[in-house]
Amino acid sequence: MIELKSISKTYPPDVVALNNVSAHIEAGEFVSIVGRSGTGKTTLMKIMTAEECPSSGEIVIGGWNITRISSGEKPVLRRQIGVVFQDFKLLPKKTVFENVAFALEVCGVAPDRIRAIVPQVLKIVGLEHKLDRFPRQLSGGEQQRVAIARSLVHAPKILIADEPTGNLDAIHAQEITDLLLKINQFGTTLVLVTHNREVVNRIRKRVITMEHGTIVSDQKTGKYLL
């Protein structure tokens, strides 16, 4: 599903964020990418979502080489990859329903279909009873669930979560972890970028550990090593 071939990324003048990173992630896998701050986890995530181009190496997603993806092709890729961030990135003036619907609206989905899909997705994340709430009226965990719902509306094959529990307390972090596991059980490939030890150890799935821009460990059923 995701093939990273000797990926390197250098920012001018000479900051090496990634150094010869290679990995293969199978369809339906749950992979945690862990490491301390500044080890290149987020850069790797940005390369997977075509926010950044690698300085060298190749990245292939679902058989599509996106190493030098054009600006016009990026939207097509992003409809196939759901992304969740630590800071939720919700629109404060839109309700829960509108925030999720927004992802479909901007892609030209018909209103009828939006009205059908959004409640279904919000049911998956357990927010079907809070459609009309605004983000400020929700807890951090609920806001993150809205963000996850938004990333799921396109039924992506891959979901990348960048520190999704970073702003949450332990209980909400656990809720989000369970939700990500549930999504993975539906067949979505899940890439979790985190430095939360408890979350990683609780998942008991593949763990890729990064340090100084390189992969130092890749365990099939791993734990947080650092």
Partner: peptide, 16 residues
């Protein structure tokens, strides 16, 4: 912020 989210969820360049 809104533009960022539009890009994130796959809005076409022209729609933005």
């Amino acid at each position: 912020d809104e533009i960022g989210i539009m890009k994130l969820v796959g809005a076409s360049n022209w729609f933005i």
